[in-house]
Simulated assay, not measured.
Amino acid sequence: MALAIIFLLITLLALVAIFRELRKRNMLGFVFALLTVAVFGWFSVMTFIDVFHGGGAPAPI
């Protein structure tokens, strides 16, 4: 669960970076921030789904 929260925080910071780089008209920074949002956003959503569906580690004895 902590991994999903970390991924979500990175995604939120990258969303802020998207708007900041658009305001500065820095297209390379914008592209990297957009890719970061896409990748880490996907990882955070999939990690939340995996955690809530009980996948991953086996159940403790």
Rank of each mutant, 00 (worst) to 15 (best):
F19H: 12
I49A: 12
M46S: 13
V45C: 08
F30V: 07
A33Y: 03
A17G: 13
I10K: 03
R20M: 12
L13W: 14
V39G: 04
G56H: 05
T11K: 01
R23H: 14
F40L: 08
A14Y: 07
L13G: 15
L12T: 09
L34Y: 05
G54I: 05
E21G: 08
L22R: 11
R20W: 14
F40A: 03
G55H: 10
G41D: 00
G54V: 05
T11P: 06
L35E: 03
V51I: 14
L12D: 02
M27L: 13
R23D: 12
I49C: 08
R20Y: 15
L22F: 14
V39M: 09
G29K: 01
I49Y: 11
F7T: 01
I6G: 03
N26W: 09
W42Q: 11
K24W: 13
E21F: 15
T47A: 06
S44R: 00
V39H: 05
L13I: 15
A33R: 00
T36E: 02
D50A: 10
G56A: 04
L35K: 10
F43E: 01
L9C: 13
I10T: 03
M27H: 14
F48L: 10
V39A: 08
A33S: 08
G55E: 04
I10G: 02
A17Y: 09
F40W: 10
F32Q: 02
A38V: 13
I49H: 07
L28E: 11
G54M: 03
G56N: 07
I10Q: 00
I18D: 00
D50P: 06
G41V: 06
V39Y: 06
R20Q: 14
A17R: 09
G55I: 10
I18V: 10
R23Q: 12
F19K: 13
G55D: 06
L28H: 13
F43D: 01
V45I: 15
L8R: 07
I18F: 05
L35S: 08
M27Q: 13
V16D: 08
V31L: 07
A38R: 07
L12F: 11
F7Y: 10
V39E: 01
F19I: 12
L9V: 15
T36A: 06
A33H: 00
M46E: 11
F40H: 04
H53I: 15
L9N: 11
T47V: 12
L15S: 08
I18R: 00
V37L: 02
V31W: 08
V37M: 02
V37S: 00
F48N: 01
G55C: 09
I18W: 04
I49T: 11
V45M: 09
F48E: 01
G41E: 00
V37G: 00
L8H: 07
G55V: 09
L12P: 11
L28V: 15
L28Y: 14
V31N: 08
R20L: 15
L34V: 11
V16W: 12
L9K: 12
L12M: 14
F52E: 05
L22W: 10
L34R: 03
T36H: 05
T36P: 08
G55K: 07
T36Q: 02
F52I: 12
G56Q: 04
F48S: 03
